[in-house]
Design a protein around this nucleic acid. Structure first.
Lengths: 172, 172
DNA sequence: GGAAAACATTTTAGGCTTAAAACAATTTCG
DNA sequence: CGAAATTGTTTTAAGCCTAAAATGTTTTCC
């Protein structure tokens, strides 16, 4: 059986798309594998954070963002960085303020804006968790050589750019 | 400044771990990039599924599992494949049975077990969505060459194996 | 056979997440 | 200036998700 729809048959790209739906099984498998890896690692990290520090992953992630911003961030900034919805951040922050890990104040120059920061307690706890967290990640990726890591970084950068471009194509 | 903590200084591995905590910043960055890619693509797919078909991503994922199993699956199977908790599957299935996409029956040989299948409607709808879904994935990964795809597959397989090993080390 | 272990699922309690609508403050620009 | 658009946040409604405990069923093995 001739492989009429494989990559070598790209002479008439005008009609081809209509007549022979392309095969994207490879990309699909890649996506599933990417998702599997992430889910696997995320679940492991989530479990360890809960067991070791009784903290949820979203809270840890939010604190990680704030740790990199000593002068604080607005809720919008956090929302964009974490790639989650605004409403999500509102609730997350509420609970972390309640538990004394975050400080929140209305900006003095723009009263729409809420600026949040880690409290002293929040920063101390985060640093303690982050140190251990880093060793977990190192262990989870332990079988990758430095070259593997570099190569993955490169290919994932390319993937990210490709996906962003695709997203922008749809939502211009 | 001499690089006292880099990889070349591994002569005294006994004391080193205590004196010079290793630097795992590269692995950490890799993990964040992996997470970013997945979140980006997942969000895009979620949005398109909702807009185009008014279906949620978890429902689509569950139907995808069942589409590959014409004879049905048990809830446990689904739970393991999707890497989500048992209780999660219970609720998801409940809603999909309610909407007529799934059929659920108690196994005749083991009354603990619930076997679920796609209904005719469920299968038809899934196939329709899956066809379009595949083109979205292809588009999201469009800038990767076939070689990139192969290489990513290889490296992610290695990553998955590494993470599974690490998880098993902790939970034997 | 029957107690104990293992298994499959559901329930519970709490938190996370989203999209969309509502609200509030600021900026744009006619 | 002042209406309209934009921006930042919160609220709402619904659904997703987890860990742990509870329930019912089957298997193991003495």
């Amino acid at each position: 059986m001739p492989a009429v729809s494989d990559c070598s048959n790209m002479l008439d790209s005008e009609t081809k798309a209509v007549e022979t739906p392309e095969d994207h099984a490879e990309e699909l498998r890649l996506w599933l594998r990417l998702l599997t890896c992430t889910t696997l690692i995320e679940g492991e990290v989530r479990g360890r954070l809960r067991q070791r520090f009784d903290v949820t992953l979203p809270r840890f992630d939010l604190m990680a963002q704030l740790d990199k911003a000593p002068d604080g961030m607005t809720l919008s900034d956090v929302s964009k960085r974490m790639m989650v919805s605004n409403g999500n951040v509102t609730g997350l922050v509420e609970r972390l303020v309640e538990s004394g890990h975050l400080d929140r104040r209305t900006s003095e120059t723009d009263r729409r804006v809420q600026v949040i920061r880690l409290t002293k307690l929040g920063r101390a706890e985060f640093r303690r968790m982050a140190a251990e967290h880093e060793t977990w990640i190192a262990d989870l990726f332990a079988d990758l050589s430095p070259k593997d890591v570099r190569e993955l970084m490169r290919l994932l950068a390319k993937t990210k750019a490709s996906a962003q471009k695709s997203a922008a194509r749809r939502r211009p």
